[in-house]
Design a protein around this nucleic acid. Structure first.
Lengths: 159, 159
DNA sequence: GGTGAAACTTCTAATAA
DNA sequence: TTATTAGAAGTTTCACC
């Protein structure tokens, strides 16, 4: 859970890998004027320390037939049911993100669906979970920003 | 924007790469009983067709000193200012996601910050954008689910 | 810590089926 | 479309700074 110290070299390695996880270590080495072996060792260390948790593809959900996004705010009957409800939510694969929140809602989640009909079924399934008193849905008309890279570049340039 | 047809082999390739983008094609080939060349050709095609948009590292934000997540609902003075406001939001790197939504809010965004003080500054910056009449913040106490892989596995097993 | 080179593995593109 | 293959390229290890 604690912070980890990374130096400028580490930041630059991450900065390149963030945009393409398959960037050859030899390319990174060339750009940073270090050896490929060093890149390898540093990446390995960042994996071991947990800074790098893994890698994943960015796929085009729309092309896969999943163009519907909605956020669902959940009101619980009693807050101590949070764990149980989250357990149930996690069994619905279309719920891709969920947070316990302060403010308006007790739990806040994001769903991905094929279309409105599909989404309706998912939301009904959520509504049916015991312990949930009410939900409020916000349908995404357009995902205008989705860019963790900008944040990462900012973080890496901070030091 | 249109859907793309993928067969079972493509799905299985994606399914393996989703969990680790550096999985050697030779490993994938062995598991699927095809040649590494075939894997290579298919991945390339999926990249060209746009199904695979890219790859990215999953980093531990907490270890990087960014443990604060909040969702901010935005009410606009007039809806036609949406574009302008989004433009401004996209200049704040700590705003990692933003959607135009129906329902309670006009725009809905997610922010990542170091701590509450940092978050406060970001939210003030959002509040200051011209055209925004009011915002409502939901602070994440815990990110309980964050798993697009479960969804992908489901999609791949659908056919 | 880092390097450079050797040994090993993987990628890639051309050819053939 | 897929398989094979061989040369190019990348990764990983290790003795030595």
């Amino acid at each position: 859970m604690n912070k980890v110290k990374l130096d400028e070299i580490d930041h630059q390695i991450l900065d390149m890998l963030i945009d393409n996880t398959r960037t050859p270590f030899t390319d990174i080495a060339k750009k940073l004027l270090i050896s490929a072996g060093t890149v390898h060792v540093r990446v390995k260390k960042m994996e071991e320390s947990g800074i790098i948790k893994g890698s994943s593809l960015t796929l085009d959900y729309v092309k896969l037939g999943y163009s519907f996004i909605a956020y669902v705010g959940i009101f619980l009957e009693k807050t101590h049911q949070t764990k149980f409800v989250l357990e149930r939510l996690s069994q619905i694969p279309y719920v891709t993100v969920a947070h316990i929140t302060t403010g308006k809602f007790n739990i806040f989640c994001k769903i991905r669906a094929k279309d409105t009909t599909h989404a309706k079924n998912i939301i009904f399934k959520i509504d049916d979970i015991e312990g949930i008193s009410r939900t409020e849905t916000m349908i995404s008309l357009e995902e205008s920003i989705n860019d963790k890279r900008r944040l990462m570049h900012t973080i890496f340039n901070e030091l």
